[in-house]
Design a binder for these strands. Structure first.
Lengths: 170, 170
DNA sequence: TTGGAATGTCAACAACACTGACATAAGCTG
DNA sequence: CAGCTTATGTCAGTGTTGTTGACATTCCAA
């Protein structure tokens, strides 16, 4: 989207939202909001001896059941060792099931068990509740803008992954 | 989930943006965007043997020069031990100066040195550059919505801190 | 059969958070 | 002044999450 009224003055009227001060406020808003964003799930997880990494794994396994380990790695952007530590505990605890691939037997396909799905629901209910309040308070146009800015802030790879997930879920 | 029809929805026009699917997309957008948000500073910091915690300290000391340790603690939301570890290295490396309070000598007031200010500029230039592109691509209305949603997502305490900082900086 | 891909595992390490305990200095209150 | 509180710093231990590097296993494909 290359914008830019051809004839308008450069600083005329409305590039105010691009001043360093405005950008800094955006940065701080991201920082404080992310804390709120993770606060509710974090509280639940800490009582279960799990952390954010477990939440993320559970979230995306729920979102794309049967996903392979490699696919999950590219979504989460961590090393396989790091993910493996988390997956191992989730599998040991009976929240995640790992099935050997039928076509390619090297691959492991990941699924939530009933217990895993229950925890996922608990976590995402809490996180969605906050998001719902924020969305409702801000209104639909604000939500559209929120998503537009966030999407533009992602790395290109993440944009693709995000879009792919988004389209698969609707 | 069969939805769609813009005109005749059960909830009266437009509460579509509050469906679970929409909320989940918002959640994933936050997750992926935050990765992008921290990516550029993280790259710079990793070459200097610093981490995100150092960045946050530097950012807020720059934002509120002379702030006390306790004030910084409430902004960052970590324990004093955690913050102290970071501050100690920054002071040792000559990026931050700690001055005993004149009125209350128990307090330490924190300032960036010239070197500290230089690093702050490097980091915030990188982070602002990405934010600027995202803001420009999304447009002013989207930016306003972005900020409205983020603000509504914060914990109440953080809303107050955020607002106070915002008003002090403009 | 050989090479490479996917996965898993072990070890070591670092950043960053936590709790708990204790020390010091300074301010405040009775 | 004595005693309590506050602000800060420090030490020790622990946990989660990330990293590298090395190596083994399995299995597909050329």
């Amino acid at each position: 989207m290359a914008e830019g009224r051809p004839g308008a003055t450069p600083m005329g009227e409305s590039l105010l939202f691009l001043t360093d001060e405005q950008l800094r406020q955006g940065i701080e808003a991201m920082f404080f909001a992310y804390r709120g964003f993770t606060a509710d799930p974090d509280r639940i997880l800490s009582e279960l001896a799990y952390g954010r990494a477990h939440h993320r794994a559970i979230h995306f396994i729920n979102r794309a059941p049967g996903t392979t380990v490699n696919n999950l790695l590219s979504i989460l952007g961590v090393t396989k060792q790091s993910l493996n530590r988390v997956l191992r505990t989730l599998i040991e605890d009976g929240l995640v099931e790992s099935r050997v691939g039928k076509i390619d037997k090297r691959e492991r396909h990941l699924f939530l068990t009933a217990d895993g799905a229950a925890l996922e629901k608990t976590l995402s209910d809490a996180q969605r509740a906050r998001m719902r309040v924020a969305f409702r308070d801000a209104g639909p146009e604000a939500v559209a803008g929120f998503r537009r800015v966030l999407e533009a802030m992602m790395d290109r790879d993440m944009q693709h992954i995000y879009t792919r997930l988004k389209d698969s879920g609707s």
